[in-house]
Design a protein around this nucleic acid. Sequence first.
DNA 1: CCAGGCTAAACAAG
DNA 2: CTTGTTTAGCCTGG
Length: 631
Amino acid sequence: MSGRGRSRKAKSPDAEHAKRKPRLDDIKEVPLPTRPDSTEEEQKKKKEEKKKTINAEEKKPLERPIREKTTNHCTKKVNEHPHKSTDSTTAKTCATKTNLTEKSPVVKRKATKDSPKVTRANKCSGGAKSQEQLAKDETPTGTSKSKTCVKKAKSPGMFSEEMTKMPPDTPKDTTQDYVETDKAKACGAKPKRQVAKMQPEQCLETEKETPKYTRKTSEKTTEAKICARRANSPEKLRKTPNMPPGKGEDFTKDTTEKNPAVDDILKETLEKLKIKKTDKSNAALVINTTKDYIIRHLKKNTESFKEVQEPLPTGSYYENVKICNPDEFDIMVPILVERVEIKPFGDDGAFYSVALKRDKNPLRKFQENGHLSASNMLSEFREEVKKCVKGLTDIKWKVEKKKKGCPAVTLTTNVNSVPVSLDVVLCLMVKSSWPSFTNEGLKIEGWLGTKVKQEYKRKPYYLVPKYEGRGAAENDGVLTKDVWRVSFSHVEKAILKNHGSEKTCCEKHGASCCRKSCLKLLKHLLHLLKESNPSFDKFCSYHVKTTLLHACCSRTRDSDWKPADLSHCFQLLLKDFENHLQNGQLQNFFIPSQNLLSGPGIKVCRILSSTIKNERQTGFPIFSEQLQNAH
DNA sequence: CCAGGCTAAACAAG
DNA sequence: CTTGTTTAGCCTGG
């Protein structure tokens, strides 16, 4: 029911296009024929054009006008930061498909998909706009100043060479592991991307007076700042009721709960966590192209993986809870296994050894001593992915080194100078009832209902080549590195997407809730805390997500999560998290016997707990600071 | 299987 | 604020 089939508004016709600013600018400056708008034929042409476009882009970096409002001086600068993409745009989809056709031997794409979309076509044709037009479009208020700023820091066009140049040894930001999909990843699988080191001064060039209270700021360079790209106007910020440093004691829990200042800080922070449309577009083009290409390759050019199923887009991006930048993507690549016997490995019910029951299975070659070797299978998968992405001439992916115990093949590249990672996760899809360790999990009856629960439990489950500890350790004749961990990423995603007690929760005609907002804020908080204290490395966004899921099960009504009560809801969620940490106990949402906090150790759990408590009771200075730094 | 239609979320305008 | 548009992702009927 969810809203399917509701009436819709008409799509906007060409009239709108006139107003629209296509900014192809950045990405491509390909001379496109003059821009027509939306007719079908045009679209087709566009697609074709796009193909060319991408190639062309490859070679030419472009200047990209920025479209931020002129009032935000800071903003512009922030946008210009090399690591942040600004708005480039679009050529996307069209390019996606077509371009492959030409360049990649393996891929044949149907051009059909895009054709219906008028809008895309427009975009594609956007490049045809004259510079003057662009100028107008981009800077409505048109100060030349702003433009100038923008230009200085231009980043190269999307498929430019620069994109491929991520220095191999670049230190990566460890805090970056937001892993939604799989804890596996969470725990270190992601490539860390280099943190943009932006000194506050850079930001303040035009706003020197801004920083009023900076708590110990600048030693931290932060990604947070990055997140704060969209700065509010300075006046607004100043109004923001921040708490001066050192004043935290004044806030008791209770006052914090009701403090309108806190409310504003949270809302403003949330604003900054939004992903820009253009960034999303750019990244989506690259990611989708790659995803399709890899799947095609596996189907056509491999024996072992030709039974690959539709890839499962999972993780925070696809759950609409990604924050700041669309820079981490998780795609699970399922290999259907018809009949398998799984046997628990260890005692928490999360890990299993897998035995194929059928003789003719193409995966048979990975069997060792009667069980399917996760490490062997992953190595071959890895090689295939490697081989495959080499054939992608438009996008230069770097394949990250294999990390112990990690199920993902992590690819990294730059999109408009922003590092983007794609985790390609091999998994087995098992279409049989879930392992018995899950019987007491997924306690969503009171929240989403029993029917929904049954529906989920009828879905397959997945096994990923993830292990913990020493790979060579043996248990019952099975090497640790050859075990598989269960994954319910698909259900997590489904729940996040359909998270209301009422079916219409957050739909157009239903009441909204703040569950996702709370999740984003907590993710962000953890991220910031990890940046300031490396000993928090073992915590990941999966802990946060799990905490939210449990919280939803204890506060089940949509009215428990009213958007107007964001601050209250968020603080309750924090208290939940603090409690889990304090006790060192956080049950896997699906497998209650697995304690997700057994890894970090109680000591650091308690430190994190009190750190969070402190933030909560002092009105989130870490958020305010970040807001300040953005200016 | 895929074209078309729908959604959520970002964004723009009033 | 509300309302509408744009767009990536997703779902489904034919």
